[in-house]
Design a protein around this nucleic acid. Sequence first.
DNA 1: CTAGGGTTAG
Length: 733
Amino acid sequence: MAIAVASSTLFHFLPASSDPPYEILQTHPSLALLSKCKSIKYLKQVHSQFIKFGLHNTKFALSKLVEFCAVSPYGDFSYALSIFNSIHDPNHVLYNMMIRGYSLSSFPYIALHYYVNMLLFGLQPNSYTFPFLLKSCTKLRVACVGKQVHGHVFKFGLENDVFVHTSLVNMYAQQSNLDDARLVFDKSDFRDAVSFTALITGYISGGRVDDARDLFDAIPVRDVVSWNAMLSGYAQTGQFDQALNLFQEMREAKVTPDVSTLLTVLSACAHLGAIDIGNWVRSWIEEHGLGSNLRLTNALIDMYAKCGNLKLAETFFDGLQEKDLVSWNVMIGGYTHTSNYKDALRIFHLMQRNNVEPNDVTFLNLIPACAQLGSLDLGKWIHAYISRHYNDFPNDSLWNSLINMYAKSGNIEAANQIFYGMKTKNLASWNVMISGLAMHGSANSAFEVFSEMRKEGFQPDEVTFVSLLSASCHAGLVDLGRQCFKSMVQDYHITPQLQHYGCMIDLLGRAGLFDEAMAMIEEMKFEPDGAIWGSLLGACRVHKNLKLGEHVAKQLFKLEPDNPGAYVLLSNIYAGAGRWDDVARIRTFLNDNGMKKVPGSTSIEVDTIVHEFLVSDRSHPATPEIYKMLDEIDRLLAIAGHVPDTSEVNYDVDEEWKEDVLCQHSEKLAIAFGLISTRPGTTLRIAKNLRVCGNCHSATKLISKIFKREIIARDRSRFHHFKDGLCSCKDYW
DNA sequence: CTAGGGTTAG
C-alpha cells in the first residue's frame, strides 16, 4: 500500500508534547518497520506511519528517526538535519544522536559544535554523550581538544562509566598517546575486554607487539574482537607463525571465529604456505554457510594459490558467480608468485574479455610475468595504459616494475627512458636500473648510474651492492669487483651478506682464481649455500678443474641431494675430460632415483603471442616449417664451418643422437620459429629459463651473421646481444 | 541511543 510521503514542512513548529509511557512506545509496531528500512523512500513511509499513529511529535519517535537517518548506512543525513532543526527543544537524546551522526561523518568537528550548543541550552551531557564525542575527538587527531573533553568528563562526574572510560582509552591510544591511554586504563577498576583491546591496538600501531601480547594475556575474559586485534597485530608485523599459533589457542579456547578472524588466518596461511590450517578454515567456512562470502572466497583463492595448489585455487575462482577486481588480481598474482607466468597472462586476457578494468595491483602482478616471458608487446601495451591513467598520480612501484620489465626484455633504452622521465625516484628505482644494466653486462653504465645516485643524495643499500657486484661479475672485472666489495664495507658500512659473497665467489671462480674464491668461502661467517657451490662448480666446468669440481660437487650434493642440476654439471665436467664411465655412472644414478633435469625452455613473442619451446619440442602447430628451417640453419652453419662440441651433452649416448639433441635445443627451435614468422631484419628476442650452452652460443652468433638478424637472448642470469657474428658478452659468461 | 578489530591484492 502506497503511503503519502511526508514533507518535512509538516512537522515544523508543532507544539511540544510529552511522550506517552516508554513501554508503550517501545513496542509500537511502526518501530519494527524502522529497523527494516533499507532506503530513504521507505523511511519516509515509516515517517508517515508515525504521523498516522500520532507519534510524530513525540521525542521518542523523532530521536528514533534522527538516529536512523544519521547512523544507518541507508540513512540520509540531510533528512536527520531537517527533523532536528524542526524541533524547538531537542532533548539530550536528540543531541546525542546528532553528535553520534557527526562523529561518523567526515566532519567530526561539527559534533563539538552540537555539544557546545547542548550546554548553551542548559542540557546536561550524560554517559551516552561522551563516547560519541570522544569518537569525534579521536577522528580529529587534535590532542588538546581531546584533553579538554576529558576535562568535561570529570566536570560532569562521568569518569567511572565503563563506556566513557573505554572511549577515553581508545582516543589516547589512537592518537598514539600511549602514556595517557595507559594512565586512564590503570586508574579504573572495570577493565573489560573492550578497554583492553583498545589499548592493545594502540600498542600494536606503536610497534610494541610484545607489550600488546602481555596485555592480551591479562584480559580476564577474551572475546572475538580481542583475539582478532591480537591476530592482526601479528599479521601486520609479519609474524604469521605467531598469528597461527594464537589461532590454535583460540580454537582450544572454543571461541567462535568470525569473518575477520578467518580473513587474517587465511592471509597468514598464504604467507607461510600452511595449507593444512588453510584446509581447516575452508571446511569451517563451508560448514557454517559462509561459502558465498566473496571476500572469504577471494582469501581462499589467494591462500590455495600461494600454497601452490593452483588447480584448487582456479576451481574456486571459476565457481565465483560474481567476481570482483580482487578475485581477478589474486588469481593473476597467484600464478605470478608461483612462476606460472603464461597462466597469469591467460587470466589477464580472460579478464579483458570480461570487460573488467584492471588497476595498479593487476599490473604489479602482471608486469613481472611479461618480464619473465619477455612478452614485450603486452608490456608496451601496459606501459601505454599506465601512462594514460597514472601520469598525474605517479605510483613509483609501477614505474619501477616497468623499468625492470624493459630491462629484462632486453630493451634497455626504454628502461632508461622511463627511469630518466620519472618525476620522483626512490631507492628501488635506482636499484632496479642498476640491476638492469648489470644484467646486460654494462658494468660501466651501472657504475655511472651509481655515482649519479650518490650525487642526488641517495644512500645505497645492500641490494644496490648486489647489483654492482653482479655487474662486475658479468663483465669479468675482477679488480672493480674487489674494490666495490671493499668500499661497501669501509665507506658504506654495509655488512656483506651471503649474496654479496656469492657474487664475489662467482666472479673469482669464473676468472679462474680458485684459491682466492675458496679463501673467501673460508673467511665468511656464513655457511655457503647451493647457489655459491653451484656457481663454483660452473666455473670448474669452464676451467676444466676436475679436482676442485669433485670436491665442490660433494658439498653441493650434501646441501641439495634432490637437485639434478648439480649432478648434470659434474657429468659435464667428466664429459669434458673424456671420462665417459663417470658420466654413465651419474646418468644411472639419476635414472635410478627418478631425478629429472629441469627441462630447458625458451620463449619468443611473435605478434603479442608468447610461444614456448622445450628440447626437441614438436607440439607447436608450425612444427613442419620449424624443422624445415632448422635443417636450413644447420646446413648454413655447416657451410660456415660450425662444428658442434658434443662434450656438453649430459648423457652418454651415441654421438649421432648427441648432435641431434644439441641441434634441437629449445633456443634453436625458438630462433627457427622467429626466423620464419617475422619479416627479414626484425630483431628476435628470446628468453631461456636455464643458462645458454656453449653450442647454442656459438651457433647463435653465426645465425645473427648469416640471417642478418639481431638476436637478444636472455638466459637465467644475463643478456646476450648477438649481432654480426659477435655477442655482447664477449664470450665471457 | 553508547566503547574495542576489520577496507582484502602489492
